Simulated assay, not measured.
Amino acid sequence: MSEGRPYGFEVLPLARIEARLVAYDWAWARDNAERVAENWERRRAARPALFDGPVLLACACAVTDGVCRVDFFETTYSRFIAYRDGGSPDGHVTNAFAAIVPWSADGAVLMGEMGPQTANAGQIYFPCGTPDRDDIRGDTVDLAGSAGRELREETGLAVPEEAGESWVLLRGDGQLAFLRPVRLDETAEQLGDRMERHRLQDADPELARVVIARGAQDIDGTRMPPFARAYLAAAFAGVPAVTG
């Protein structure tokens, strides 16, 4: 892990995000339709619950003076998964998503292990998901709303009205991870208990279990994706603006 670029990711504090929806002709997806179909058939055979709905991917991103301007376009989940499974070969398109990072009152981060029926089964990260049509507001994309919705759906937690608006962008590995650290008033154990009760009330929960990270020793190099490891490494190393 290199100092200043944990796990190969840039860590960029943001004052504001301006996300918009644009029209985009994705040549890779058009030229690889057969590969997309074959990959989706393989994925569905392993996890029949997967749904090929509309999702939003990024086709441009620039950060200037703390302001991030990012362009999204609509495509299908099967195209996105084939692209990601193939190593994101088109450098013009990026998997971009937003997440709330729940911090407890005693300085821990709450995460979840994805359930066996999900596309990322077994991976541990913050409550998040690929933006979709529910996040479109006219010609803008509501990343804050997307992150808040995923937090509620997966954990039952909500962002306090008085929470700060700070964001941090982790850019690398073919991803744009827009993370909003939020401090909550309860301890890690209390929050974990609330998340577990919410999980057990769901007939088909996305999370298999709740995970609490209290320090760098809790970074799981096997099951945490690189963006999550990069954030935790920076946060527990005391990088300014990463913990909110």
Rank of each mutant, 00 (worst) to 15 (best):
E150N: 08
G87M: 05
L57R: 04
I17C: 04
Y125F: 15
A49V: 12
R30Y: 01
G174D: 04
D218C: 07
Q190I: 00
D173E: 07
G221K: 12
W40P: 10
E3M: 09
Q175I: 03
Y77F: 15
T155D: 07
F97G: 06
M195G: 04
W103D: 08
E154D: 03
D204T: 12
R20H: 12
G91L: 07
P102Y: 14
G112V: 14
V11L: 11
A235C: 10
P226Q: 14
L200W: 08
L232F: 13
E196C: 01
A27N: 02
A23V: 03
T243V: 14
E189N: 03
F236K: 05
P89Q: 06
G238C: 07
G138C: 00
F178P: 02
A147K: 02
R20N: 09
G221I: 08
D134P: 01
R5F: 01
G238W: 10
I212L: 13
L169G: 02
E38Q: 13
T140E: 14
G4K: 08
R197H: 01
E162Y: 00
A46V: 12
A163R: 03
D139R: 08
D142L: 01
F72R: 06
P226F: 04
D31M: 05
G107P: 00
D193N: 11
V211K: 05
W103L: 15
V22T: 11
P116F: 13
V211L: 09
V36K: 01
Q217C: 10
A58K: 01
D65R: 03
Y231G: 02
I136E: 10
D204M: 11
A49G: 10
V55D: 09
A37P: 08
C59P: 07
Q175S: 06
L14M: 10
R35G: 06
A108F: 08
A230M: 09
G174I: 03
A228L: 06
L200K: 13
D218L: 09
D132Y: 09
L57Y: 03
E3N: 07
A45G: 15
M1T: 12
S104L: 06
D185T: 13
